[in-house]
């Protein structure tokens, strides 16, 4: 069930390869020299206690934050220090740990924003006058622009149908009216609309009850089955065990273990880290209602 469907061609270069990543905040070293790689088609999980530096690593990869040291190569190009827009254009999309939907936009618009980088007809690639052309095209809306928009809207429905009838019936409702779990789903839908080469998911099941978690697991598994490359941060270890090709364990900004799920699970360093910090992920209190605010003992 969780066997890799299309085994990665390990011989070629990884899609994402970060080496020696460092990010310090004042005295705190959030990320202290991490190496990390993801191959095309792979699902790699990053686990570790709170404050281990997982989200910070995501921020560095997605360009929201700049590393103090280290290199990040994506699809052969160095992307360390590039702007988030540039990195998105290169093919990385992400979700956020606490959910950052556009509160006043409808579900459909939220997801369409995900496809922003794929707009071609309305965003001609011309230098200098490109923005003005975009404005003119948006106002005039020739057939090509309308067709593109219609296609994308169809695609939005398609993506939303991944989540059954969780989102589709609410497609025109503003995101702020959604339950927490639904907002997380919208985020994933938005990221998928970007058709990313690499999808970064930051605790996609935080705040979800067991049923919802199980649903999410199926969805991620199906994405993986389609060949989507995924880098996943997740606390729920059984989910990690079932989905991952490889697991990377961070503690205190350092990588303390890496390998197949089973191997990592029994690694003494990992157990030590988890025991030392209290067992956070696996024993997370379950059963909170879907509408509840994030009540897991997880802080940024």
């Amino acid at each position: 069930m969780n066997a890799p469907v299309n085994a990665s061609p390990i011989t070629t270069a990884p899609l994402l390869e970060a080496t020696g990543l460092v990010r310090r905040f004042g005295g705190v070293t959030a990320v202290g020299g991490i190496d990390l790689s993801v191959f095309e088609g792979e699902l790699v999980s990053v686990i570790g206690p709170n404050g281990a530096g997982k989200t910070t690593a995501f921020n560095l990869i997605s360009g929201l934050d700049k590393p103090d040291a280290g290199a990040i190569r994506f699809a052969g190009a160095n992307i360390a220090g590039r702007s988030p827009e540039g990195i998105a254009a290169a093919g990385i999309a992400r979700t956020f740990q606490h959910g950052r939907v556009f509160a006043n936009l409808s579900i459909a618009d939220n997801v369409l924003i995900g496809a922003h980088g794929r707009l071609r007809a309305v965003r001609p690639d011309w230098p200098i006058i490109g923005p003005l052309a975009e404005l003119a095209l948006a106002l005039v809306r020739p057939a090509s622009v309308r067709a593109e928009e219609a296609t994308l809207r169809d695609e939005v429905s398609e993506i939303l149908s991944l989540f059954g009838d969780r989102l589709l019936p609410r497609i025109d409702q503003p995101a702020h009216s959604l339950s927490y779990a639904n907002r997380r789903r919208v985020e994933i839908a938005r990221a998928l609309a970007a058709r990313p080469r690499l999808l970064l998911l930051d605790e996609p099941t935080a705040g979800m009850n067991p049923t919802e978690t199980a649903e999410m697991l199926e969805i991620i598994a199906s994405l993986k089955a389609r060949g989507q490359t995924i880098l996943l941060i997740e606390h729920k270890l059984d989910m990690v065990m079932r989905l991952s090709d490889r697991v990377i364990v961070l503690d205190d900004g350092r990588k303390i273990a890496e390998g197949k799920p089973q191997a990592v699970r029994t690694d003494p360093a990992v157990i030590e880290a988890y025991l030392g910090h209290g067992n956070i992920g696996a024993a997370a209190p379950a059963g909170n209602a879907a509408t509840a605010a994030p009540t897991l003992p997880v802080t940024a």
Binding site: S62, G63, L64, E85, L105, I113, H116, A194
Partner: peptide, 28 residues
């Protein structure tokens, strides 16, 4: 009104609601 109903409308509103998330989706 026409501008707001176009992709520019939603893009601008996305910038307003959360500029960080907007940037992560390629919005300059």
């Amino acid at each position: 009104v026409r501008l707001l109903s176009s992709h520019l409308g939603r893009t601008m509103r996305a910038v307003r609601d959360d500029d960080v998330a907007a940037r992560s989706f390629g919005i300059s």
